[in-house]
Write a protein that binds this DNA or RNA. Structure first.
Lengths: 342, 342
DNA sequence: TTATGTTATGAAAAGGTTTTCATAACTGGT
DNA sequence: ACCAGTTATGAAAACCTTTTCATAACATAA
């Protein structure tokens, strides 16, 4: 039914080998024959059979992209960056959403292994026992993005999270905040930890130091943000509540703002808030949220690019791994941090 | 390197055919030989080669899922439903995000064709020239979900959008609204149109009728919601503004609420608002948004199930297409529609 | 006992590429 | 005019399964 390379060869009056050479430009072919072949391909509507191609080349030309949550705009932008880069090269992609569940991550990785993808761009879901090792076992090249993997053999693309933490904290200091608290993210996530480090460093540079009572932890969800503010106000009933809060991601920051409203704490006014990621929601809530944004699209594209390099290197027999690219971030100033008209 | 079925055969002292029969349970095999084979498979760590399998069977065991926006929680839930169903059967999935751009939809579909997927679950991005026809040409089975395709040959899974429109409108009427407006969605999208029809019918059942001045159109985005409210208040400067608004999706409804705030119109109080989809955001904003939700996860799972049936039928030589499943929807009452304490 | 059907297995073909190995026809240099 | 090196092509092998066709052994029915 579907024409094969043999049909093309016959129609063009050449051998299948020659047709293959024309298609893949893998050896010189006389101009005249080339024309005969392309004509035959055209008229038959021939397309190379993916399965046969993959079998012979032992390569699927498919790449995997793993993220913990596709509905998080941060990750969907990352995906878009990576996807565009892959599609540019005529490569296909499989997107995997682990929903942050290790079980689902494993299942997804098993799928990618079964599909014999040529490589994977991964935002490994959890620190503990991440399935990336599995890909290593199978000798499938991996590039990590946004979060640091445990192994440093793995090429990694990151945002400057520590710098982000510094920027956010510095911003609040400039706005005149004196008691600045921090809502940390889940303990296993490098991103969250580095942001916290930035906060600590920003304070220390000014010879202040982080008061333990002003620090609490959430798990990146909206409701954990609400609980965080509750706890912080409880803890500081005597010493005086924080007047500024750096929150490890936007979603929790929105939770903080909602809870502040319930408690009749004015944001901004009584409390300035800064988040991270610049998700869509941050522009939509009231007050709009000051946040630190990373060049997500470019991070995705870069990760894909590095992965392709790595695959290419592997084919050439060289092995270059363990590169590290860090992107600068940017403070996006909005209403939630405009203290006292200043 | 990687062991083949031949290695297994040799180790077990049988022919490759027998090994294949053991693996696929495609013909009776003596208990003793079966054991020898499974032992050999185990000890060699054999896994069947996907490429060879696909080539021989002319089937990838991969299914496509097309949505206009993966970061929209409505669609990501739909995806999860479909994906879970596919994974259950050991099938793989490729998720495509068209970003609502026809160009991207075409590129994605081209990719699915190239990958020779066994079938596609699609929320066709636009009404006009949707790429689904392309899949038809390639004889790739398709099931449409959430939006009606142009062809009625195609099995479709829908929410009862007209019913939703009715419920939303009826709810506002019960709350005492007298001048109820409607913000329509993009003209090509069946979902949006049906919701509008529900609105009209709800009014007519009560022998009211929809005032043209109370109707305007948006494009499903946040900012188009803001503009919509502006236009409606402009239009009705003399006749009096609407006291209730049914908005074709939640994102626009949030835009309406934000704009109302800017204009000092109280929601609820001066204006009651109802949206559709029950996206995460609807619970997070202030006031929380009353909305109509559909069983999104089940819709995705059902679509995948029907697709699998259809593929199976095709293999058996029968052709059953054009089924139609409609899911009931549910009103989720929140703050935005609680008029005057009543 | 002979014919018929079922169970259990192997040999070989088929699925559609890419690539190695050969060969032939040229090219350019001496 | 001869040799070396390209250039241009074809034949055939290899990639790894699944499946058809055969064959043999065995059971059941007449």
């Amino acid at each position: 039914m579907e024409p094969t390379i043999l049909d093309v060869a016959e129609k063009a009056g050449v051998s299948p080998s020659t047709v293959s050479r024309v298609i893949n430009e893998t050896a010189p072919v006389a101009e005249a024959t080339k024309k005969k072949v392309t004509d035959a391909i055209e008229s038959l509507g021939y397309r190379t059979n993916k399965f046969a191609h993959a079998l012979r080349k032992q390569s699927s030309n498919v790449f995997g992209i793993i993220v913990p949550d596709i509905s998080n705009p941060f990750f969907s932008t990352l995906i878009r960056g990576a996807e565009d880069r892959f599609h540019e090269g005529g490569l296909s992609t499989m997107i995997c959403d682990t929903k942050g569940e290790p079980k689902k991550e494993i299942r997804n990785i098993e799928m990618l292994v079964k599909e014999r993808v040529d490589g994977v761009v991964a935002t490994s879901a959890e620190s503990a026992g991440n399935g990336i090792n599995r890909l290593f076992e199978e000798e499938i090249p991996v590039v990590a993005v946004d979060r640091s993997p445990t192994s440093n053999e793995i090429t990694t693309v990151l945002a400057d999270n520590e710098g982000s933490g510094k920027k956010a904290t510095g911003h609040l200091l400039e706005k005149g905040c004196r008691r600045i608290g921090f809502v940390r993210g889940p303990s296993g996530v490098s991103t969250a930890h580095e942001r916290f480090t930035g906060y600590v460093n920003a304070l220390e540079e000014r010879e202040l130091h982080a008061d333990d009572d002003l620090i609490t932890q959430g798990d990146f969800t909206f409701s954990s943000g609400k609980r965080a503010l509750e706890r912080l106000r409880e803890k500081n009933r005597n010493s005086g509540p924080p007047d500024g809060l750096v929150v490890a991601n936007d979603l929790m920051a929105v939770g903080v703002i909602r809870k502040a409203e319930e408690l009749n704490v004015k944001v901004p006014g009584d409390l300035a808030v800064v988040g991270f990621d610049d998700i869509l929601l941050s522009k939509l809530i009231n007050p709009t949220l000051t946040t630190v944004s990373a060049p997500t699209y470019r991070m995705g594209a870069t990760a894909a690019g590095l992965l392709l390099n790595e695959v290419e290197s592997n084919r050439m027999g060289r092995a270059d791994r363990g590169k590290r690219v860090v992107f600068a971030t940017e403070l996006v100033e909005r209403e939630s941090s405009q203290l006292g008209g200043g």
